[in-house]
Amino acid sequence: MPSFDVPEVDFTRYSNRQLAGVPLAVLALALLVLAAWYVLNGTPVSLGLEFTGGTELTIHATSAQAASQDAVRQAFSTPASAVRSIPSRPDTYVATFSSGADASALQSQARSAGYEVVSTTSTSATFGAQSQRFALLGLLGSFVGMAIIVFVLFRTAVPSGAVVLSAFGDIAIPVALMNVFGIELSLGTVAALLMLIGYSVDSDILLTNHVLRRSGSFYESVDRAMKTGVTMTVTSLVAMAVMAVVAYAFGIELLTSIGLVLVFGLATDLMNTYMLNLSLLRWYKFEGVSR
């Protein structure tokens, strides 16, 4: 019977600089990706249809000659901005049109070309712009709210700041990874990012609490916090990875993207908590307090 044990790491072998260096370098790289994306595309992340406006038709080809991306393009008088097939559903295509296209007209064009219209999503540009503003407000509001709670919980600047910094990395790195993997920012992924804000600080709170509030040496506290914290994060990570894989197989795109973003974020959280947050805490405990 295999078993899952949290390994004990000998942190004394690494300096604070070494420990914090890796996550900080990854964070810097992530910010670089976001900045480059912003310069190239005007937004730090690729925005999905819900934010840019536009129309998306999911159609199912009823005949063999209709079952190709070219045939899909030819079915519409308005040129599609993108056509892709859904791997888990045979003969099913998603055609995307820029905003301004008439959803009803596109539907009837698809039907007369021999396609079944499976689903239609259409968002106006103004509606999309508004959703963008709300999504940004939501992310900012929830991050600031989380930071306030953390400061209230620990009431000391360095440990609280360490938690907030590592939570910032937990958001920024997955967003950069979304760009790399071609996942667009949609309402589903915004929800996943918000969830990450809540989820990812759990292990940081646990670690900081054990180090600051429990008896025992620094390394004993860290070991105990890691045992619990890594179990927690790995459990969530497995749940989300399984959800992403299963939802992909079933063709439920919303659950796939939520799952993937959370997998990115939780993996990042493992690194940030036990390298970045831990080294900042150790510096605070051994050098910061005595100053």
């Binding site: 407000l137 929830s142 709210g145 919980l153 809540g198 989820y199």
Partner: peptide, 10 residues
Amino acid sequence: ATTIVAMSPL
């Protein structure tokens, strides 16, 4: 508390 605060804007 952090999860609730993070979710409440939504």
